[in-house]
């Protein structure tokens, strides 16, 4: 059902103006508030306000994020290193008659 035919969950006499993205309920414009880039109803806003902040300080979070990114970067680089290493091994172990072109009638 579209927003235009909905009524506010707290004020049935009023038309709904927004839908809370957290609980999915319809509310009039006086029952919703913008919070952190989202339009929330009062109960979801209370719940969001009560949610405890992460115990880690901002610098700890930054450090964790940076080390995570560094690990991904390292893992990605290892993939390339291993691939080139495998190519090197393949070339080292390849028969010299192929590498030197001797198999086509030339000298070794």
């Amino acid at each position: 059902m579209t927003l235009s035919v909905q009524r506010c969950a707290l004020h049935p006499a009023r038309e709904a103006a927004a839908r809370c993205p957290a609980c999915g309920g319809f509310f009039c414009r006086e029952c919703v508030t913008e919070h952190d880039g989202r339009v929330l109803c009062s109960s979801c806003l209370r719940a969001a306000a009560k949610r405890p902040e992460s115990k880690a300080g901002p610098w700890m979070r930054r450090l964790a994020g940076a080390s995570g990114r560094a690990l991904v970067l390292l893992a990605s680089f290892l993939v390339a290193w291993l691939a080139f290493f495998a190519l090197g091994q393949f070339l080292v172990r390849g028969p010299s008659v192929v590498h030197s072109g001797a198999m086509w009638g030339g000298k070794k």
Partner: peptide
């Protein structure tokens, strides 16, 4: 890297370092 690995008889001794260098160049 290609010429060294395919022609050098001692290439197996430094394939790790050579592939690391190639990965860095990549």
């Amino acid at each position: 890297f290609w010429a060294d690995m395919s022609r050098n008889v001692n290439a197996a001794d430094h394939v790790v370092e050579a592939s690391l260098g190639l990965a860095l160049l990549f």
